[in-house]
Amino acid sequence: MKECSEALKTFLHTATVFYKCDLYEITLTSGTVLRYADYDMPITLSDGRFFSCEGPIFSRGKTKLTAKIEVDSVDVSVYAEQAEQINGMSWQQAARNGLFDNANLTLYKCFMSSPGVVVGALEWFCGYVDVGGGGGLEQEWIIKSYMQLLNVDYPTGKYYPTCPYTLYSAKCGLVRANWTTTGTITQVLSKQEIYTNLTFTDGYYDLGGAEFTGGDLSGESMSIKNSHAANGHIVFIVALDSLPAVGDTIAIYPGCARTPAACESKFNNKTHNCSTPYIPLKETITK
């Protein structure tokens, strides 16, 4: 339902001639509010909100009104010159930096008795901005209705045979720094395999990760495929960009199979494990 003032209702019922334009109110996630009028003069509403006629040019597709609960969207094209700035950058640069992502855009339809003399404005559409693309001076925005946020699976909780939480995440509860050990490379077998001075049991670092803290590869990280106790043998999931050197230092942390047994025996963290290994698998019965 569109809220309309009594003055605007009376005007629309009685006026034989009127003027109208679109007003765009953009609220960025930072709280900054931008207001523009698709008109050749600025528009000021009765509540004092000022919509500039200078700046980017907006054009939009059609909207649809229905009494049913339907998810709608509006395509909006934005044309902005390089000289037009927002937060010290051009609109094109702002879009590349994600400034408009998930911003709120409210479209108003403004009615006037004569050019610039506002009788009232109707909120026509409201949604969040999804920057679909662009090129040159043009940006293509898709304004998606907030009802799209209701399009989620319910219940939100899922049942998996292994724990759905990412290792070292907030829901997992483990802090990676507490499980990280620093070691030194003692022999380089290939770009994918090294020996270290670390002592551990077979498989302890499987599915874990390593970050080089010294040498030419300093700062590079790599996931671990296998780990073997003999000689502190580490096998990376893929080959490194270049060969490390003997004496390079690495920070290494273990991975988790995300089963209740692994969570309990390896990390003593079973209370945070959310796996459901005994949920029956889907079965199809034919007859």
Rank of each mutant, 00 (worst) to 15 (best):
G136S: 02
L137S: 07
S169P: 06
R176V: 02
I143Y: 03
G132T: 03
Y159F: 14
G132A: 08
Y128P: 01
P161V: 04
N151K: 08
G157Y: 12
F125L: 09
G136D: 00
L174K: 03
T162I: 02
D153P: 12
P155N: 07
Y128Q: 04
Y159H: 13
K144Y: 07
V175F: 07
C126Y: 09
G133H: 13
G157K: 05
C163Q: 11
V129H: 05
Y146K: 02
G135A: 08
F125D: 10
W179D: 09
L149E: 12
V152M: 11
Y146F: 15
G132K: 15
D130C: 13
D153W: 13
Q148C: 04
L150G: 10
V131Y: 10
Y159S: 15
F125G: 06
G157M: 13
F125N: 06
Q139P: 07
T166S: 12
L167K: 04
G135P: 11
V152G: 03
Y128A: 03
T162W: 02
L167M: 09
T166G: 11
Y128E: 04
V129K: 02
T156M: 06
P164F: 14
T162Q: 07
V131I: 11
L149P: 15
G132D: 07
W141N: 01
L167E: 05
Q148N: 00
K171Q: 15
I142F: 01
Y160I: 01
L149Y: 14
P164Q: 07
A170L: 15
N151L: 11
I143T: 02
V129L: 08
K158Y: 13
S169D: 11
L137N: 01
Y146L: 03
F125E: 05
G173I: 08
N151R: 12
G135K: 10
V131N: 09
Q139F: 02
G157F: 12
W141D: 01
G136I: 00
N178Q: 10
L167I: 12
L174R: 04
L174P: 05
Y146C: 03
S145N: 13
G134V: 00
M147T: 02
Y154E: 15
V152D: 09
Y160A: 06
R176F: 03
G132E: 13
P164V: 09
